[in-house]
């Protein structure tokens, strides 16, 4: 999960990822940032994230993003 936090820090440094639980709903991550994030995640964790999984709930916190990565790994 630390690597995920690093990726997020690089993409959008102005957020406290430890506490933030509304990354999408609070507009900290916009569509283009999510695009970069997905590209990074797919590259780094060797998973494929389908478009149906791109919903705010899956990207609102580091924990949720990590859960999504693990789910994709299992698939």
């Amino acid at each position: 999960m630390d690597r995920l936090k690093e990726i997020l820090e690089e993409l959008q440094p102005e957020v406290d990822y430890e506490t933030c639980e509304n990354l999408v709903d609070g507009r900290y991550l916009d569509s283009l940032t999510i695009l970069s994030l997905i590209s990074e995640i797919e590259d780094e964790f060797d998973v494929e994230i389908p478009t149906v999984e791109i919903i705010p709930a899956n990207f609102n916190s580091v924990k949720n993003i990590w859960t999504l990565i693990e789910k994709m790994r299992e698939d």
Partner: peptide, 17 residues
């Protein structure tokens, strides 16, 4: 993937975006 290698993390995904 190709654009990120050449243009970096910000501008790379911006092309498909």
């Amino acid at each position: 993937v190709k654009a990120r290698k050449k243009l970096g993390n910000h501008f790379g995904p911006l092309i498909s975006g």
